[in-house]
Design a protein around this nucleic acid. Structure first.
Lengths: 169, 169
DNA sequence: TCGGAATAGTTAGGCGCCTTACGATCAGGC
DNA sequence: GCCTGATCGTAAGGCGCCTAACTATTCCGA
């Protein structure tokens, strides 16, 4: 989702657009575009930061999920569910992580269909080398927002979520 | 950028994480995650809507850009700049749009390196079949936000933008 | 008990976007 | 006039994610 307009149209242009298209609500569109522009930049910034550590966003998320409880291995299906990707995609993510020695696949003891994925010591060490910078980056980017701002932002997001069509199944 | 955690961790988990990682600012992280979760859902929703019209986000943006002034053709380089993709990517987007008869390539009169891209009548008609639904969708999703909410959201996004590292060149 | 349905993970192929490298053309200083 | 460098659009190849189809295993009702 890295694609967005580089420049958000000025408000007068939105007003003019509303004359051609009566369905266009200028203030809704303005808020929408700023929201997407900013979050796209955020994705981009952190994706770039992770790329500097030679890891993709998808693989980073997998490591974070496994690192929540490093001793307990997790099935690829659960990882796919939590990370919001398909199981096919998760296979590929685990493939490269395992090739790089950051995670290890094991056979599940009670179900021979199932695998279990465990983060390795190397994987933990690798993650420890990223997380502090990652957390500092988030704190920095949110630095100008007061406590009230932050709560307000969460509330606005909740209002939008209420009007989003439910995800398929 | 469709990848995100499906469930945002509860605030207590963020607090616990802050014990392990002193760089983790829980309220900043909470706001960050809600922002990305919601905008990811928005991208997803509108991407799905566009897919229902058999067009990708990238091609849709190109049509919208050309439709701002349908009589004036635009160079691929300008389109790439405005749409925030590389020129190589723009070549591919224009290829399919032209194959489907929605835009037409012309030679620039004064510079034989340059092409000019123009939206066709078919392209305009196609876009008119999407835009009303698109605009209605945005108005709907922002429907619960008051005028004050919307201005506030734009202001919060501006605060975040100020702390984002400048884009490369 | 046994045969169909559900579920596990994987494979194959596609799409969208990227980076890199290219040939063609224009612009400016000598 | 020309060489150098910038800029045009394009081609080739890579990455991340997707859907659809497959094999192996487990579950469950007749």
């Amino acid at each position: 989702m890295e694609l967005m307009l580089k420049e958000i149209p000025r408000y007068e242009c939105l007003l003019e657009g509303a004359r051609r298209y009566p369905e266009l609500d200028p203030s809704a569109m303005e808020a929408f575009l700023h929201l997407l522009r900013t979050s796209s930049d955020l994705f981009d910034t952190f994706g770039r930061m992770l790329a500097g550590h030679a890891i993709s966003k998808g693989r980073f998320v997998v490591l974070v999920l496994l690192n929540r409880d490093p001793e307990t291995p997790v099935s690829p299906a659960d990882l796919a569910d939590w990370a919001n990707v398909t199981r096919a995609t998760m296979t590929g993510l685990i493939d490269t992580l395992e090739r790089d020695g950051l995670v290890r696949r094991e056979n599940a003891p009670n179900d021979r269909r199932m695998m279990l994925v465990r983060i390795t010591a190397k994987g933990r060490k690798f993650l420890e080398g990223i997380l502090p910078e990652f957390f500092r980056g988030i704190a920095a980017v949110m630095g100008r927002l007061t406590t009230v701002d932050r709560k307000g932002l969460v509330g606005l997001m909740a209002k939008i979520q209420q009007n989003l069509p439910a995800r398929p199944e």
